[in-house]
Design a protein around this nucleic acid. Sequence first.
DNA 1: GCGACATTGTTTTTT
DNA 2: ACAATGTCGC
Length: 723
Amino acid sequence: MDVSFIFDDLNDAQRQAVSKDPCPMLVLAGAGSGKTRVLTHRIAWLVTALEVSPLSILAVTFTNKAAQEMRHRVERMIGSPMRNMWLGTFHGLSHRLLRTHYADAGLSNSFEILDAQDQHRLVRRSLRELNLDEGFWPPRQVQWFINSNKEEGRRPTQLEGSSDNQHQTLTQIYAHYESLCQRFGLVDFAELLLRSLELVQNNEPIRDAYRKRFQHILVDEFQDTNTIQYRWLKLLAQPRNSITAVGDDDQSIYGWRGARIENMALFQKDFPETQILRLEQNYRSTGTILAAANSVIDHNVGRMGKKLWTEDQAGAPIRLYAAFNEIDEARFVLEHLREWVHEGHRRDSIAILYRSNAQSRVFEELLLSEGIPYRVYGGLRFFERAEIKDALAYLRLISNRHSDPSFERVVNVPTRGIGARTATAIREHARASDTSMWAAAVELASKTQIPTRARTSLNYFIDLIEALDASTQDLDLTEQTDIVVQRSGLIDHYRKQHGEKAQTRVENLEELVSAARHFNYDPADDQHPDPLSEFLAHAALEAGEGQAEEWEDCVQLMSLHSAKGLEFPLVFLCGLEEGLFPHQRSIDEPGRLEEERRLCYVGMTRAMVQLFLTWAEVRRLYGRENYTRPSRFLSEISAELVDEIRSSTVLPRATSTPAEALNTVAQTSSPGINLGARVHHAKFGQGTVVSVEGQGEHARVQVRFETAGSKWLVLAYANLDPA
DNA sequence: GCGACATTGTTTTTT
DNA sequence: ACAATGTCGC
């Protein structure tokens, strides 16, 4: 068969990686070097040239988006659907494994997936049941303790015997939490991975079956694998050892949530015949941008060694702006983004990137007031919205009455007279008789232990769920969802409320019905007992990014982490200040600092044509104004690549005299009253102009006075003098 | 059970 | 600053 089409648009290194005989292979793929392309082409090559069945391929990614994209690309190349190829996220594939072998994994066939919120709630419940004070054992920290232990493959029994009291208690909570999960058939995200690892680890027949089946394993973003993900891969890959791992140690930015960059070294040790290939030609950025990014990442020690290069000419210099404060920073970005759009570029070719999501606000406010469409990534996703989770909880109760988290969530939503008191009674009773809350509620509803009023309400709720179940038995998922949304009273509940928020909630609920409609259930392909459970699992595993939302041509705002894997012609990398980026909490530890540097590298390498870097000398954070110093990463960029734009502000810089300061670009008609100018006011004394709005008579300035605090003043009346 | 006030904790995020 | 909880009084 002619397979030349697979190699047509590949360079030598890529070609080698794609067509290497099956072996353990580690592909070090730099930013923009065609990493995804290598993976997809290799799959295509395996299937066509080696005539490998798609059934015997296992391809793993981290995000659903990446998985979808990869499947799509492979299918387009091969020209036929690849439904039976196992291509998905670690969590998705683990889930599939557990559904198929639930009994061997020690689970019930109706186990459900807990998301982070549900897990948080369950941790709190564990604390309550153990009579531990939340103040002393913050649920979030407990959650972190549990997850990070699971990610390292540690069960409570392996943690016992510590002499440290605190550690002992945490382990005890972990154990209790686990018993609750087990009792109610709940599986959190880390548990999906750990269970499925333990399944293949402890069950020889199953392990052998999958080893035999998966003749070729491919892994994307290998540098982000954690301990148990790597163990799982290793277990499945041996002894055949045809495993292709693609990754970039310089883009490892998830160490804080358990990713082990060391897995790249471990891989070479565990698979001694490993072939290492490097993809070092970058097709994305200009020479200048690449050189700048390289000069930053060069400051990390212990890299695997890789030098990105490009055939592109130098390109425009990187432009650096020292803003006076975050408002000035946003203004600067706006100004240059406008210019870019005026040159005829699309808005969605622009990204504003920042270290922490809180930084988006200033940009949003400005873009909104200027009427420029934008989209902020991150934040609540579709299936995480409260009203959606409510509706899903109803659906879940229909399919599994004993789901405590769902029960707790909706017994009183919309409010129907089952308050905290009744809920506690049910919980206590469930605990005492070791059953689910549903069972306890059914029992209590016929007894006189609780007030008649509450009992009536409880009976109403029980009947509602039973009725919903009975009447939707034979309906399809869409109708089922529709009826639940209507009859649960959720829609009416929000319809009655006014305001924009309630309105979007109603719309979201309607959207859920259409999400159910578009959800295709494939009974042949999957292990799910019914479409409903599969839909629920889908909701938990795939939070619904971009659920049916049509985005017009928008400026893209996102954190550096969410920008990984994306590229934009124009990038603004903002807030390059010590303490913000690198983040304060990463500054002291060398390992974490290097991760911040990699994050900076990731950010810079997103830019294709033009990169702007900005920092603000004063930044309001958590309600406090802070004086900042420029990020160390700025000084790590070779100076000749950077065009430092003169700040329109007066900086407390030794080089500028007050006279020079007052003559910098005027934005107001009053000479000398510019951003950053030192001024004097008859009543408030000395101060500094921190922001300026409007022109001429209507000009207003915000002045931060040394003793009188921060004030907004109308220039025409304030009688400010340059000081 | 609900609204009004107080308290709290704020990096990054997928699944 | 601010959102997201928790507590209290009705």
